[in-house]
């Protein structure tokens, strides 16, 4: 469903992605691991369409369409969802209103009737349970005054409601205690299906104990330098990212 070839991107004059290749098929879970500054978050944001990053080369197709030509909202409506590493606080906009607008934008795009407040609430209630969320959070402003854990959980809750085809989790595990991590992981696992692709971007192997990936890719200095199965994550955990500097040919680290 997602095909990326030699993708390059920069912010300002600073090139961060130096040519990424990745194929994600429906039903697969891919983990992207890498040390700080390797370009993981940039990669996730470029996929979601953040315009602070300028794509300078390469291509990306999503379900046969040119992903890079689509606006962020078009990508979302076509079924791409990114869980933010740092979810944004939006004072004055209730979580419920925000999510219903989002869901209706997608339903409209697919030619489905929009949900009214009642339909919507019925639909979200079960997802609230799934993420073990306090229902009061629904009526609060989007992420405003949420703890770090509540924000991350709210991201996965949104994902559960919007049911994307391709989900990108940008360091969703960072800052979560083990209980919250398990809840978030079970939310993600509930979404695993043969029709859906998932990209998990993470710094730590810990999350992958709960969301077991089909493939692990190591991102280093803006390139994927190693790919393998889930055991690659364990190897990384054991040897640390320092191991990459020795194992990656010098020419690729620049």
């Amino acid at each position: 469903m997602l095909k990326i070839r030699n993708l390059k991107a920069k912010v300002g004059s600073n090139e961060i992605l130096h040519g990424i290749n990745l194929d994600v098929k429906a039903g697969e879970v891919h983990a992207i691991m890498g040390p700080n500054g390797s370009g993981k978050s940039t990669f996730a944001q470029v996929l979601a369409g953040r315009d602070t990053y300028e794509v300078t080369g390469g291509e990306a197709t999503y379900e046969g369409k040119d992903l890079l030509a689509m606006s962020p909202e078009e990508r979302a409506r076509e079924g791409i969802f990114m869980a933010f590493q740092y979810p944004v606080e939006i004072p004055g906009v209730s979580n419920t209103y925000f999510l219903r607008s989002a869901l209706n934008a997608m339903r409209k795009h697919r030619g489905l009737p929009e949900y009214d407040a009642m339909d919507f609430l019925a639909r979200v209630r079960e997802k609230v349970k799934l993420l073990d969320m306090d229902e009061a959070l629904l009526n609060r402003s989007v992420n405003e005054g949420f703890s770090g854990g509540e924000k991350k959980r709210n991201e996965i809750f949104q994902m559960a409601v919007l049911e994307p085809k391709l989900a990108i989790l940008d360091e969703t595990d960072s800052g979560l205690d083990i209980d919250a991590l398990k809840i978030v992981a079970s939310g993600v696992n509930a979404l695993r299906s043969p029709e859906r692709g998932i990209i998990v971007v993470t710094h730590y192997q810990r999350l992958l104990n709960y969301i077991v990936p089909d493939f692990v890719h190591v991102l280093y200095n803006g390139r994927i330098v190693k790919s393998g199965g889930k055991e690659l994550a364990l190897e990384l955990e054991e040897k640390g990212y320092g191991w990459l500097e020795e194992s990656v040919p010098a020419g690729q680290t620049a």
Partner: peptide, 13 residues
Amino acid sequence: EAIFYLRSRGIAL
């Protein structure tokens, strides 16, 4: 950032 957040959920600019 808030604009991008909303757009990334399908809400038009």
